[in-house]
Design a protein around this nucleic acid. Structure first.
Lengths: 263, 263
DNA sequence: AAACTCAATTCCATATAATGGAACTCTGGA
DNA sequence: TCCAGAGTTCCATTATATGGAATTGAGTTT
């Protein structure tokens, strides 16, 4: 038998390895040349070379200047479909719009995906800034309003699964930087039904979020309103809280209605 | 060198087959259940089942209600990186903004990708409508301003490669629905340096576009301004043309500067 | 320019994973 | 309850991926 990697539960064969390489290249913040990928992936030269050339030919990677591999545009096309056809997004859209009208600030929809939050949609406050700068972006669960709200509705085993693998990093002085602090806050969030982000992820950015789930277990998400600290004080956050909670509840209601009461 | 087999150009092994399945599912407009994919892919049951289960486990597909396969959120995360790190997009962004300020209408950036145009960025006219509804979307080359502008800068063999495989479909009464009409128009576009879309793709939508390329041959794109026919007449299109041309030229200049004069 | 170095690419015997036909199970409707 | 169609699993066979080593290529120094 082949040697099993410790803790690795999924068997996705050749595809899995190729996707791992793709992700390595795509999520790197610097362009990677062949040797860089070689070092990062730990695979033999010949193998890696073939994987990269397949990814290139499939348009999932592209070759930039100076032999640098960059993520390919075919990913955009595929993701565009994923976004357009996502049911949660479609259900939530009108409620996000409404929430934006009520508050005048930026509204986000994020879903829990493993140990991180992926932003599924947003409604911008002012003019169309660099828009989908956020959509598809992954953020930590423990220091975003959306993340904490999502965690607050997990049952014990699911929460444990997330928490046990978390690596905390302090982004600002307010960041909850250890598990105990996070768990204490989650208890508070469960009581209130809303989560706050008081400049815990980005300095100068505050937000209120409320959880959305589908009654079953697989879909966990959250809705939030975000604004700059200079115009969003604690009282403003408190004022928004019921609106956010109501929006989340409305999304949830519609979701359950659409998918049927039980899975 | 091995002689090339007729028709089969790419050898991407197992990955290629898996991606083909992924694309089938992702680009379908209806949810597909196992049997639907089976019919569409033409592969044996066992094989397809394994491919799908690998795609599921990798998060590239997800299982929706009623055993329906839908594109997975991992695609969003990957595409977000592709978008953020795309050099053309980064270079063009400020010029798109400027063009938007000059015209007050929606501005697009699209790149030629095989036989279709993929929208890379857009700056919305009014409030943030359903925003990236477009980004990543693929549109036909022959009936969009961006598409025709892009085609106009291809050299003969590259153009032939695109045209020979095109399947024309009439979207509106104005659609150029055959190769001869398209080629005639391309000649005109080459003279003028701009392409017009006079409700050829969507009724009520007009646009002006100008081509962007990198001097070499691999990057071909276009910039456009789009508006509703009721407030965009022929004279308005003509008025915008020089602005669009200038924006495209500016993007091209910056691009060549960044990448170096020759590849 | 020639020589040198490090990166990228190709090769090929072997190991491993994909294949696909058939049997099995599950689910929901009559 | 039985049936039919969908979805899932099995496993001997075959095709594909693997990976170490040799080759080519690109960029730099003497």
């Amino acid at each position: 038998m082949a040697s099993r990697r410790g803790g690795e539960g999924k068997d996705t064969g050749t595809l899995g390895k190729a996707v791992a390489v793709l992700e390595t290249v795509a999520l790197s913040d610097r362009p990677m040349r062949f040797t860089d990928v070689l070092a990062a992936s730990g695979q033999p030269r010949g193998t890696l070379h073939r994987q990269l050339s397949h990814l290139l030919r499939e348009g999932l990677l592209e070759l930039g200047p100076d032999h640098a591999y960059v993520p390919g545009l075919r990913l955009l096309k595929l993701a565009s479909a994923a976004w357009a056809r996502n049911e949660l997004r479609a259900v939530a859209a009108p409620f996000l719009e409404a929430l934006h009208r009520e508050t005048g600030e930026t509204v986000h929809l994020g879903v829990l995906r493993g140990r991180e939050i992926i932003y599924l949609d947003k409604v911008e406050s002012r003019q169309a800034v660099r828009m989908n700068s956020q959509i598809g972006n992954a953020s930590p669960v423990y220091c975003t309003g959306v993340g904490k709200a999502a965690l607050s509705v997990l049952d014990a085993p699911a929460l444990e699964a997330v928490l046990s693998g978390l690596e905390f990093r302090r982004f600002t002085p307010q960041t909850l930087a250890d598990r105990a602090a996070l768990e204490a806050e989650l208890a508070e969030i469960r009581r209130e039904g809303v989560a706050f982000d008081r400049e815990e992820h980005e300095p100068g950015i505050r937000c209120v979020a409320a959880p959305v789930h589908d009654g079953g277990r697989d879909l966990v998400a959250a809705v939030s309103v975000t604004g700059p600290a200079y115009r969003v004080g604690p009282e403003r956050l408190a004022e928004w809280a019921p609106h956010v909670r109501a929006a989340a509840a409305a999304v949830m209601g519609e979701l359950v209605f659409r998918l049927g009461p039980q899975r």
